[in-house]
Simulated assay, not measured.
Amino acid sequence: MEEFRANSGVVGGMFAGARLLLLTTVGARSGRPHTVPLGYLPDGGERVLVIGSAGGSPRDPAWVRNLVAHPRVTVEDGVFTYEASAAVLAGAERDAVFARAVEQDAGWAEYERVSGRVLPVVALTAIPGPPRFAASTPGGMLRSVHDAFRRELGLIRAEVAGSGPVLGAQLRVNCLSLCAGVHGHHVREDEGMFPGVEASRPDLAAAMAALRVEHERIAAVLERLQAVLGSGERAGLAAEVDRLIAELESHLEHEERVLIPVLDG
């Protein structure tokens, strides 16, 4: 957890390259906060999923019991810290989500087999409100968001390269979640950050206009990627992911050169 917090969610060792978060629950008996690192699955929008495998233990992990008693939890994703509502999924919804997880990583099925129990699948839905940033400056905040996109792009590129001829359900969700995240980030910049910069620094009008054009170009790339995902066909996915990576990485570097000196004064 110390490594996670010190490195904006990046850790080494056996968890290097994994999607990780820190989940803080309130103890069902003690009432004290309890934090654990967990792998998670993107689920689109404002929701992520965690699975109570406990390494194949026959008992549900304590954090599951805690959130059943106290569903309001705190999530740290390396960039933001935010409050969330936790819900244990049931029935067909739980089974469909778990099947997605197993399709991407058969280890989940092995954990369930060894444990002798149905592994709980928990949805963490962000509660509306301003998140807390791990970074200490506005420019640092922007860079940490960008670095999170860079890491996710790398994970998706590796997942696409390692996938079979059929487009997996969880891979599709991962890609769509990234598309939604990039789109939302750019909308917030277009409607909030960019007008503020333009008002305080009119000398940067041309540079800001160029960044807006890049947003429009990336939006078109996102549309093409979403069209491939909507077709359900694996063909062409790698090329569209590579196109997005090239466009987005170039844009992120450009935006950092223009904005970070301004944001940090």
Score class of each variant (00 low, 15 high):
E3P: 09
R5V: 05
N7V: 06
N7R: 14
S8N: 13
V10S: 00
V10T: 05
A16S: 12
A16F: 06
L20K: 03
V26D: 01
G27M: 02
G31A: 01
R32D: 09
P37M: 01
L38T: 00
L38H: 03
P42F: 08
E46K: 11
R47K: 11
R47Y: 02
I51M: 09
A54N: 07
G55F: 14
G55T: 11
G55W: 13
G56V: 04
S57F: 08
D60G: 04
V64F: 13
V64A: 09
N66E: 07
H70N: 12
H70F: 13
H70M: 08
P71V: 03
V75S: 01
G78M: 01
A86M: 05
A92V: 14
A96I: 04
A96N: 10
V97M: 10
Q104I: 07
A106S: 12
A106E: 09
G107A: 11
W108H: 06
A109N: 10
A109R: 12
E110I: 10
V114S: 09
T125P: 02
P128I: 06
F133Q: 02
A135W: 01
P138Y: 11
G139K: 02
G140E: 01
V145F: 15
H146C: 09
H146L: 06
F149N: 00
R150C: 12
L155T: 01
I156M: 08
G162F: 12
V166T: 12
L167A: 04
G168E: 00
A169F: 09
L176I: 06
V182N: 01
V182C: 06
H183P: 10
G184Q: 08
E189P: 04
E191D: 11
G192R: 14
M193Q: 10
V197H: 05
S200T: 12
S200A: 15
D203P: 05
A206S: 13
A207M: 07
M208H: 09
A209G: 06
A219W: 09
V221L: 13
E223F: 15
L225N: 03
V228P: 08
G230P: 00
G232N: 06
E233T: 12
R243G: 10
L244N: 03
L244T: 03
L244M: 09
I245R: 11
E249C: 11
S250T: 14
E255T: 01
V258H: 00
V258Y: 04
